[in-house]
Design a protein around this nucleic acid. Structure first.
Lengths: 102, 102
DNA sequence: AGTATATATCAAAAAAAATTGATGCATAGA
DNA sequence: TCTATGCATCAATTTTTTTTGATATATACT
């Protein structure tokens, strides 16, 4: 396991990560993905009551932060939570928000 | 210990918390406070190479998020890391960035 | 081939956050 | 009481993020 060095690069890296967590819609999105597993964009639109463009914007932010995982199946694009990254960043207390069966 | 409910209020609350962590200057600030203990604003200005107005702005954000603690002594205002809140939010892996002697 | 659906992306507009310089208020010392 | 220092806060500006509506691309079905 690589140790985490307290340098500028590290601070920038994690600031980015936390930025992606800094919106209630995205936290809810993660929570829904967690509860439901793999979900396609069009279903997420309904679940989140959000138009597709906006949703894709937020999905991209989470994807870039490696907080969710994308899998394309035919016409559909499925997303799921990346539990590993969630665990890497968040306390176990908080992880319960993004952990199956809460 | 109060359980964390996955509702709108919770998402807003933690989104706020993560927003305050979403800037590399603030992460560095927390890291410095962690390494040095209680530090007054004027010393922090030099440590962070930041003007006082800007520094106070960022300190306020961390203070509002309960990530740091303020103590006034005479003319000076001292700040220190709130380890408890850091632990509440961040994984133990990450907490090492904000934990004495890293 | 033609059409419909799913989704990403783009450009413009709106909203929010950060920076800057100025000002004001305590406190402490002369 | 006068002055200097430490700090918070305000208003104006700049920068960044988010939202919106439109367009483009890929897949699948007819």
């Amino acid at each position: 396991m690589k140790p985490i060095l307290a340098n500028e690069k590290t601070f920038e890296h994690y600031a980015e990560a936390f930025k992606s967590l800094s919106d209630p819609k995205r936290l809810k999105l993660m929570n829904e993905l967690c509860a439901r597993g793999q979900v396609c964009v069009c279903d997420l639109c309904e679940i989140m009551e959000m138009n597709q463009s906006k949703l894709s914007y937020h999905l991209k932010i989470l994807l870039d932060a490696n907080l969710i995982i994308q899998e394309k199946k035919g016409k559909w694009n499925y997303y799921a939570l990346n539990q590993k990254q969630v665990n890497h960043l968040l306390s176990s207390e908080l992880c319960c928000l993004f952990r199956p069966s809460d």
